[in-house]
Design a protein around this nucleic acid. Structure first.
Lengths: 339, 339
DNA sequence: ATCGGTTCTGCAAACGAGTGCAGCCTGACT
DNA sequence: AGTCAGGCTGCACTCGTTTGCAGAACCGAT
């Protein structure tokens, strides 16, 4: 016996499929006699009836599916966010379809095309660039979407981002408090909102705290990756070997620093302190354990999902954006400067 | 203008929808005049026609979707496997739907129910237990599925697993080669195939290499987790404080050992050497970098996806299972025993 | 007894694509 | 010229569910 269909239930209950449909759907249940409804429901349970979402989707033009666009699931930043998203989506009867773009715009476009082909009802996007024509276009086409972690400029799309400025301020204050005066920043790419926001916050912070404002203390990395971080630190050390502390754009960039420390025999935090950003898992097991700015990953995801579900159910509510608070996790990679 | 439908294409091309359908579908294209087909295809491209998979799925009873059942996406072992899977699924026109079970059988059942409700055409399951009635039932019901990483006993389901025995042998040989005689094993739970296979392999290896075979040197951990690993090592040290090397059931258990080392002031690898299993990302950044048995994560996923696609297209081909080769990655957590 | 109004149920038409079957046309062969 | 085969195309139905509309049954009020 195949999985029973609505018609089977209706036949077994002695009613018309339409009535069965109404009885089974909580929203329309009021239209049918309470007694009949009860009977239909009982029969449906007895048969183990599960409505076919494909058929329903065809009729209602809804897929109960939303697309998750991330750069790379393998990046430890994303799994917790994805879980946060799914934990909200699931009780709402939605499922998430994950695609990886590998930060390739071409691939991103293709993947989003694919998602739209699958009739997703909305998009949660973690690949935003500051200048992102594709996102702008989708937005004007009315595709419900929310950005996580990063956001494009000048487009009124709802977003959930960490409070980058506050996070960097926390990091710089911590280092200044330890006595560091020559603090550098390995910034993320200038094409991402997080990259520029953190850089701007860094500049403000060093100025406000009367630290060294030499522009040579800022190096912009090409990617949010270990390798780019390592390359950035090498460049920095070649220009300013006297630097005593580094605020990394994110944890991966900080990990790149560790590689350079090993390579050049620099002791951390003895000679140079490092602060990361994101608080990826297992950072506490590093040598030394990485001091970093912690963002509430799961909460970011959950909040994003909620926002998207809102946007889907009330399409013309104004875009709402949320800035999530974060905290500094002090571990072993920061210490007062030598001497 | 909404996304164009098959009827739109047909109208624009001046043919009947049925003809358009046949022209667009490579499998049936031979039935229509080559010239007509060309024209229809051209028009379809012009309009940006994308077949609606929901409608197609309704008619063909295929969803082009497969379910990925994993314990927890947040566990670093899984993202690479998932990527491997999706990299194969995508070109084949399939998408993966991920669910997390948190190792809760109740939740697992509910999630799988949900996946089946969404008409997935097959399942890739990473949550197998040795005794797993649910999987056995699904298998007899004819649900195409393949197991990754772990497999149930006594059921003829295709699976992709690492060669656990060979891996453990590699680890024990390495330690024996360094001069260790008192090697312990922190085994994973006996409810999982990997747990028992690795334990059995460990027992064989220590016997074959003439090492200490004291059963007290084996501790079975309740879960594949840091905490369980830490608890296991504490128990071990209380019984056999003279142990000089530990083969951990997996990397998380090994990480738990690191916690105990810190807690009790034990130096690694000075006093105790540790070998992990799986080669999760970033293990090389630990202090000390963890020696571990590397499994080809992406390849496991890719192979699993291929096997499943095969099983879907040829349902009564006999189940094929693959044992993937692995290698030992020697890092800093292993050294000759003191003295 | 008639009417108006509920309350419930059934009918039938969708949604977008796939497909067996019938029928058209063309061309070739007798 | 008539027949037949074969190649294309169109018709109409189907997948499982939802939903506007119509009609049945029943109630109370006139």
């Amino acid at each position: 016996m195949q999985t029973p269909t609505l018609r089977d239930v209706a036949d077994a209950a002695g009613v018309h499929p339409a009535t069965a449909s109404r009885a089974l759907n909580p929203a329309t249940r009021g239209l049918v006699n309470a007694e009949t409804a009860r009977r239909v429901i009982k029969v449906a349970e007895g048969l183990g009836y599960r409505p076919n979402p494909i058929a329903r989707g065809l009729k209602t033009a809804k897929s109960s599916t939303i697309g998750l666009v991330i750069p790379d699931l393998t990046n430890p930043l994303f799994p917790p966010i994805v879980r946060g998203i799914e934990d909200v989506l699931e009780p709402a009867g939605y499922s998430g379809l994950i695609v990886n773009t590998d930060n390739d715009p071409q691939r991103e476009q293709a993947q989003i095309e694919l998602l739209r082909g699958r009739q997703v009802e909305g998009l949660i996007v973690a690949t935003a660039l500051i200048d992102h024509p594709l996102m702008a276009r989708l937005h004007t086409e009315g595709v419900p979407m929310v950005m996580v972690n990063r956001r494009p400029d000048g487009v009124d799309i709802p977003s959930i981002t960490p409070d980058d400025a506050a996070g960097i301020e926390l990091a710089v204050q911590h280092l200044a408090g330890l006595g560091h005066a020559k603090v550098a920043h390995l910034a993320g790419p200038g094409t991402t909102s997080t990259g520029v926001a953190r850089l701007r916050a860094f500049r403000n912070a060093v100025r406000d705290l009367d630290l060294d404002t030499d522009p040579e203390l800022v190096v912009i990395c090409d990617h949010w990756s270990e390798d780019s971080g390592a390359a950035g630190l090498r460049r920095l050390l070649d220009r300013r070997p006297d630097v005593t502390a580094v605020v990394a754009g994110n944890d991966l960039i900080a990990l790149g620093c560790y590689d350079v420390f090993a390579e050049r025999g620099i002791s951390c935090p003895g000679e140079i302190s490092v602060v990361g950003f994101n608080d990826m898992p297992f950072l506490d097991k590093l040598a030394p354990p990485l001091t970093t700015v912690a963002i509430p990953h799961q909460q970011i995801g959950a909040e994003a999902a909620r926002l998207l579900l809102d946007a889907i159910s009330e399409p013309d509510r104004p875009a709402r954006s949320v800035l999530l608070p974060l905290s500094l996790v002090v571990r072993g990679s920061t210490a007062p400067p030598a001497g």
